[in-house]
Amino acid sequence: MTAISIESEPVREIMDKHDKIVVLGAAGLVGQNLIVELKAQGYDNLVAIDKHEYNLGMLAKLHPDVVTVLADLAEPGAWREHLRGAVRVMQLQAQITGKDPQLFVRNNIESTKLVLDAIHEFAVPFLVHISSSVVNSVADDDYTNTKKEQERLVVDSGVPCCVLRPTLMFGWFDPKHLGWLSRFMEKVPVFPIPGHGRYMRQPLYNRDFCKIIVRCMEKMPTGAVYDIVGDQRIDYVDIIHTIKRVKGLKTPIVHIPYTLFYWLLKGYSLFSAKPPFTADQLKALTAGDDFTGVDTEREFDVRQTPFEAAIRESYCDPRYAGIVLQR
């Protein structure tokens, strides 16, 4: 599935660069990049809400002109008032990893119910909701199941909105995924690969995705659901070799039997409250998903950055490559 249009409407207004835009979950990977992109495009009335104090503080330091609000969206509170007068709300908050199933329910479902209630109360004209490609996945885990329920809540809410389902993302600020792997490779004597490593991935460059978010914010494609996929298919082992080459590293890459790799992750999770890579994620990596997405250049006028160029900018660019979020 590439795009579903439900009661699609034409553009109803032209946004002003001074319109109030509220970004929920703003201190995470997508949010930090989205703030950079919004400012680059001239938007100057931004409100960033997040519960992660350190990461939100980093955002405030990088962008002192942005209003930052430390708040937990899964709890009623004064954060709701910041939606008053908003012309757009961007919903990014998500629980992606964790060992407690209730965290996924709380942060993916309960927070969304409260956000939708506030959007109704203040009659926000349009919501851009960031879902995930996992809603089309064969995976069966807490993240996948709660993201499916979260998307259903949004689509059934009656709020004018569009839904974006990105695949695995990478880019500036990334504390997990490819960002963590690139830093891990710098520190270890050998870099382990599970099995043969020929697990096809469709990584999406975050800066490209943020440009798509802004286009949806401006065009208001009400009722549309878009699958946003990295347009280059690349095996996991080749991703690792690309990172090694771009960063000029000499770390040997060693293949480890899949079963051994799985149990090593299981064992590590017993001693780490926030493991950077889990056994469930390993299952998802090897699930064999092959996603089909919209043509981002035709649909949004966003030509995707070639993978190696995007990796180079992500991990070598002096502007933000050295800034890493806390998990």
Rank of each mutant, 00 (worst) to 15 (best):
L204Y: 04
G158I: 05
V134G: 00
E149K: 08
F191W: 09
D141R: 04
S131F: 05
P203F: 13
R152I: 01
C210E: 08
Y199R: 12
R201S: 08
C210P: 08
M169L: 15
D208V: 06
T167G: 03
V214N: 13
G158C: 05
M200S: 12
H177F: 13
R201V: 00
I213R: 00
Y199F: 15
D208Q: 08
V229M: 05
V128I: 11
D141A: 03
I213Q: 01
H196L: 07
T167Q: 02
P166H: 06
N145S: 05
G195D: 03
E149G: 00
R183H: 13
I228V: 15
A224Y: 01
R201Y: 01
V135W: 01
M217Y: 06
S132R: 00
I130P: 00
Q232A: 11
H196Q: 12
T144E: 00
C210A: 14
G195N: 04
E186G: 05
R201D: 02
M217H: 06
C210F: 09
N136C: 11
P189A: 13
P189F: 14
R198G: 03
V188W: 10
M169G: 10
C161F: 07
E186D: 12
R165G: 05
M200Y: 13
D156L: 14
M220N: 09
V225I: 15
V155A: 04
G230Y: 04
L181A: 14
E218W: 10
R201C: 10
I228Q: 02
I212T: 10
M217T: 05
V135T: 15
N145F: 02
K211Q: 15
C162N: 14
C210D: 12
R152Q: 13
